[in-house]
Simulated assay, not measured.
Amino acid sequence: MQCRVVCVSLLLVIVTLTEGMSLRGLGVEPRCRCSGTESRRIGKLIESVELFPPNPHCKDTEIIATLKTTGQEICLDPKAPWVTKVIEKILANRSP
């Protein structure tokens, strides 16, 4: 009986560790990066912008801006009109 408890406990530990490591080891976060978004105009403060399309771990499109002065990353509201214009400019510059 004691051997079964130890074996089951060991199996649970192994499954838990491998499940957690499988996604993080690939550089994939198992959740959304943004918990909230900024909709105020901060265009002049932005150094760079990254666009993350929906994926199996996050159903939302995420737009993350890095600020010039502090290097802080801020999630932008993809529905804000000024953010839409910024994304359109980025996509237009990428096209050949």
Rank of each mutant, 00 (worst) to 15 (best):
residue 1 M to K: 12
residue 2 Q to G: 11
residue 3 C to A: 10
residue 4 R to Q: 12
residue 5 V to P: 02
residue 6 V to I: 15
residue 6 V to R: 04
residue 8 V to Q: 06
residue 11 L to D: 07
residue 12 L to F: 06
residue 13 V to K: 05
residue 13 V to Y: 08
residue 14 I to Y: 09
residue 16 T to F: 15
residue 17 L to V: 14
residue 24 R to K: 14
residue 24 R to Q: 14
residue 25 G to I: 01
residue 26 L to F: 00
residue 27 G to S: 03
residue 27 G to K: 03
residue 28 V to W: 08
residue 31 R to G: 09
residue 32 C to A: 02
residue 33 R to V: 09
residue 35 S to A: 11
residue 35 S to R: 12
residue 36 G to F: 10
residue 38 E to P: 01
residue 38 E to F: 01
residue 40 R to H: 08
residue 40 R to M: 06
residue 41 R to S: 04
residue 42 I to V: 10
residue 43 G to R: 08
residue 44 K to F: 09
residue 45 L to Q: 12
residue 48 S to L: 06
residue 50 E to N: 11
residue 53 P to W: 03
residue 53 P to Y: 02
residue 55 N to Q: 06
residue 61 T to F: 04
residue 61 T to W: 03
residue 63 I to E: 00
residue 65 A to H: 04
residue 66 T to Y: 06
residue 67 L to A: 07
residue 67 L to K: 11
residue 68 K to R: 15
residue 68 K to P: 05
residue 69 T to E: 14
residue 70 T to D: 02
residue 71 G to C: 00
residue 72 Q to N: 09
residue 72 Q to S: 10
residue 73 E to S: 14
residue 74 I to M: 07
residue 75 C to Y: 01
residue 78 P to C: 13
residue 78 P to G: 13
residue 78 P to I: 15
residue 79 K to F: 05
residue 86 V to E: 15
residue 86 V to W: 09
residue 89 K to I: 03
residue 92 A to I: 12
residue 92 A to R: 15
residue 93 N to G: 00
residue 95 S to K: 12
